[in-house]
């Protein structure tokens, strides 16, 4: 066990991946609690597909991937938020439309540019060596913002997540908070995507919150538990990935599945006793 840690810490790219992964897991879990409870979890999934499309096009056109992907995904997040809240197109259909559309465009872009050697596989399922130094900087800033928001605006996040109509009626700036959550989710997804892969990143948003909700009964305990579960799952997943030489994203998803099963069982037992 300690040998594995020592080995990981001796390789700079793995240290970077570990830092980015822990911070992204933390942010995704905190934002995920609000998204899952507001029935917005599919937005996370939609955004990761848009992220894939944006990354593919940026690579083909030889542009900086983050500089293209972050604004595009943020724009998509605002668009999805608007579509789901005003109900012109049904939310789930709108998300499917946008995510498959972006995926299609991304694959077309890569296929048409014959000269470029793009490893689609690493975009779809993640790759640990793609984590750059700038990713570390962005993820530290992101984590600071998310933590600040959850500590100082926790009561407002609760009120808006629980009941938007009431929060609006008592003068809460609901739209500002929704946009803030969408913005931070978009950035979390883009950064986490290179490590986890665009197919798997939304698991970081959904799994920890759902697992925690099986067992914990108050919003505070669900939020804290999600953050802990997410970070612990990431670290275990990364160790498994290193030890067994399996892809990092998939390993983490499997740990999250095991966590969910565990929480599900505990939830069943405790409810039967009650």
């Amino acid at each position: 066990m300690f040998e594995i840690f020592a080995e990981i810490f001796s390789v700079p790219v793995l240290v970077r991946a570990l830092i980015v992964g822990i911070l992204v897991s933390l942010c995704a879990a905190l934002l995920g609690v609000s998204l899952v409870l507001k029935r917005f979890s599919m937005i996370g999934d939609g955004l990761s597909h848009v992220g894939f499309g944006a990354l593919a096009i940026a690579t083909v056109m030889n542009l900086a991937p983050m500089a293209v992907a972050i604004p595009v995904v943020i724009a998509a997040a605002f668009l999805l938020l608007r579509l789901t809240s005003n109900g012109k197109i049904k939310g789930d259909a709108a998300i499917a439309l946008i995510s498959t559309g972006a995926l299609g465009i991304g694959v077309m872009a890569v296929s048409l540019s014959s000269g470029v050697n793009v490893d689609i596989n690493s975009y779809l399922f993640g790759s640990i060596i793609s984590v750059s130094k700038s990713d570390v900087v962005i993820s530290v800033i992101l984590a600071l913002i998310v933590l600040f928001m959850f500590v100082f605006f926790y009561t407002k996040i609760f009120a808006i997540t629980f009941d938007e109509s009431f929060a609006k009626a008592t003068g809460g700036a609901v739209n500002v908070y929704n946009m803030m959550i969408a913005l931070l989710t978009a950035i979390t997804i883009v950064i986490g995507m290179r490590l986890m892969g665009s197919m798997l990143i939304s698991s970081l948003i959904i799994f920890p919150a759902l697992s925690s909700m099986r067992v914990f009964k108050s919003f505070l305990s669900v939020t804290i538990s999600s953050a802990v579960v997410s970070v612990v799952s990431f670290i275990i997943g990364m160790i498994i990935s290193y030890a067994l030489d399996t892809p990092c994203g998939a390993s983490i998803v499997c740990v999250n599945i095991a966590m969910f099963a565990g929480f599900f069982a505990v939830g069943l037992v405790s409810r039967k006793r009650a």
Partner: peptide, 22 residues
């Protein structure tokens, strides 16, 4: 929704609080 009764009730006090966090 996973929230304690107390958490829900006290969220009604938000309108009198401005930007104070706690």
């Amino acid at each position: 929704f996973p929230a304690s009764v107390y958490e829900v009730v006290i969220s009604g006090c938000l309108n009198s609080r401005g930007i104070r966090p706690f």
